[in-house]
Design a protein around this nucleic acid. Structure first.
Length: 469
RNA sequence: GGCGGUAUAGCCAAGUGGUAAGGCAGAGGUCUGCAAAACCUUUAUCGUCGGUUCGAAUCCGAUUACCGCCUCCA
């Protein structure tokens, strides 16, 4: 039985979707004014892994994730790059797609953009004004937070104890337009020259939170199963989304709220963020780190835990992944001489490991325990592959299960078909030399190939080779 | 000031009452002509103090350190 940690209740709850076998989830996507950094990637990976596990369990997942394509930062970026806001957005949406594809994130069912939903946003705001939850003020529209009785429940905040300005990001001019400092903007009047849309309140653009409410309800309905995002979005972003949406629909917005932990960096263990400037972009890092290693590194840590981004940890991940690939290759190699049939005892062990894997992942997507089962399976496979006689059915079963499990983490194990006449000729020559106990020549050939990055491995089934990583 | 999170071996990291999963790195071994890969063995009393209990990493209280959010942020 799948349990998820629900931020709303701060405990693990049994997951039950609204419609059987379907999961509707909305995950807050990036503001597209820059390349995504590793922290953004973590969020994308966390929820992609969750999505993949639902799919592994047989659910159909409707996965909606937005692009925030207009806000202060885009306007600033457009100015700096001397291009328009939509051009900035297009450029970095394209980059986002390239980067997330590199780390094997499944494309979302829909990637709606804020600017493509302006009429819906305006209609949504109108309803909030009609219901008394919002008010216009000098061309801006604000949400009357105190009016929503559950305000603060997601993040356990008491309205009266919120310290205004604690984050040092408040705008004094904006405060003056609000009835109450905790109110937040639904619509912002355009400054001269700024990109804007016509509205009943004059030219302007949407506030940050409203787009998610609008697009989530538009594409997935008033009540969704899962709403996800980074922990930093818990307050105020998600709090505000709840306030807006529930005020409008009168329905519960999301049954389960899931929040992923941060990527921290450096000795201080600080959160990686664009504003701190301590970030590494995916665009850059995958030039030197294999994308699947980055993916493996992040996907195999439980999504709520912080991840410390260091070279050493990345190197560990690379070793771990290699171990799985080796096992996969070891098994594939034996497929050639395997005989028809199955080994019932081993098959049973595989099924047990699979069941353990499901148990682990059912516990709030406990990837560490999940991957531990994958290692168990790899070990079982390695041991089995050393048998003199192996059964084809069993080998295939282990291979399939390995692949299915790592697929949840967004990893695809590859078994390269190696073909090289020159190398094979040398291997043959070496075999002959060994037969004649000419070990000097034999070792010479191996050294020669090693210099070319080719590793030879002698097995009872013959000599095989691979490229050094 | 309010709210929340984390603290387990050299490193990463499981583990919510019964005597510390797993991986990496290290050491020893098996296999090998030698290797490689694999496999086997081996490495901790759980931030600190106190309490509850037959028994606690796990519950309670206190304390320390670090991190995050409080309307920029995944």
């Amino acid at each position: 039985m799948l349990k998820v940690f629900n931020t709303l209740t701060r405990q693990k709850e049994v997951f039950k979707s609204i419609n059987p076998n379907v999961v509707n989830m909305y995950v807050c996507g990036p503001t597209v004014y820059n390349y995504i950094h590793i922290g953004n990637a973590r969020s994308a990976i966390a929820f992609d892994t969750i999505r993949r596990y639902f799919e592994y369990k047989g659910y159909k997942v409707n996965y909606v994730s937005n692009f925030t394509d207009v806000d202060d930062k885009l306007i600033k970026a457009a100015k700096e790059l001397n291009i328009t806001v939509p051009e900035v957005a297009d450029r970095f949406i394209e980059a986002f797609k390239e980067d997330t594809s590199a780390i094997n994130i499944e494309p979302a069912t829909v990637n709606p953009r804020a600017t493509e939903n302006i009429p819906e946003i305006i209609d949504f705001i109108k309803v909030l004004i009609e219901k008394g939850f919002a008010y216009e003020s000098v061309g801006d529209v604000y949400y009357r937070a105190r009016h929503f009785e559950h305000y603060g429940e997601l993040s356990d905040q008491n309205i009266d104890e919120l310290e205004v300005g604690a984050s040092e990001h408040t705008d004094p001019a904006e405060l003056e337009k609000k009835e109450d400092p905790i109110d937040f903007a639904l619509w912002k009047a355009a400054k001269p020259e700024e990109i804007s849309w016509e509205s009943p309140w004059g030219a302007g653009r949407p506030g940050w939170h409203i787009e998610c409410s609008v697009m989530s309800t538009k594409y997935l309905g008033d009540t969704i199963d899962i709403h996800g995002g980074g922990q930093d979005l818990e307050f105020p972003h998600h709090e505000n989304e709840i306030a807006q949406t529930e005020a409008k629909t009168g329905q519960k917005f999301a049954n389960y709220w899931l929040h992923n932990g941060f990527v921290t960096v450096g000795d201080a263990n600080e959160k990686m963020s664009k504003s701190l400037g301590n970030f590494v972009t995916v665009h850059d890092i995958i030039k030197t780190v294999a994308p699947e290693v980055l993916r493996f590194f992040m996907a195999t840590t439980q999504y709520r835990r912080p991840i410390q981004y260091t070279e050493a940890n990345l190197a560990d991940a690379a070793n771990n992944l290699k171990r799985l690939e080796t096992a996969y290759n070891n098994l594939n190699y034996r497929l050639k001489d395997a005989e028809a049939g199955n080994d019932p005892k081993v098959d049973q062990e595989v099924r047990q490991i699979q069941a353990n894997f499901v148990d682990a992942m059912d516990d709030d997507f406990n990837a560490q325990n999940g991957i531990a089962q994958v290692y168990e399976l790899a070990k079982l496979g390695n041991i089995y592959a050393e048998n003199q006689r192996v059964d084809q059915g069993t080998i295939k079963m282990i291979l399939e299960q390995l692949q299915a499990m790592v697929n949840v983490f967004g990893i695809v194990l590859k078994s390269e078909e190696l073909k090289d006449d020159h190398i094979e000729a040398l291997i043959q020559e070496r075999l002959d030399a060994r037969k004649n106990k000419d070990f000097a020549r034999s070792d010479e050939i191996r050294e020669q190939l090693k210099a070319q990055g080719i590793i030879l491995e002698d097995t009872p089934q013959g000599t095989r080779w691979r490229r050094e990583e």
